[in-house]
Amino acid sequence: MNMHPTTAGLLLAGILFVLGLISVLIRRNIIFMLLSVEIMLNAAGLAFVVASSHWGTADGQVMFMFILAMAAAEVSVGLALILQLYHQLRTLDSDEANRMHG
């Protein structure tokens, strides 16, 4: 295994991303879906950092900070909505929560 560090880093990020994606698709608990999305976001962040170190610029790192901030905001709103949903439905199953059709 003699891989260029950038390639390896991107590969790792990609694997994380795919794991997150799979998890979003198969999980039925909304909180876990949210968590999986966070994993994907962080995978993207990792990819940015790897790219940033590859080019020797700070752009990617700055981007990662923004991703962090955005993920945080997303989680706060998301959890609030989930609380609200739980309050109404008494379940976090995403199939149960799918009441609108068409």
Partner: peptide, 11 residues
């Protein structure tokens, strides 16, 4: 997340 990862790849 997709958008970001795409951006990261382009970058």
């Amino acid at each position: 997340a997709f958008l970001l990862f795409g951006m990261a790849l382009v970058y």
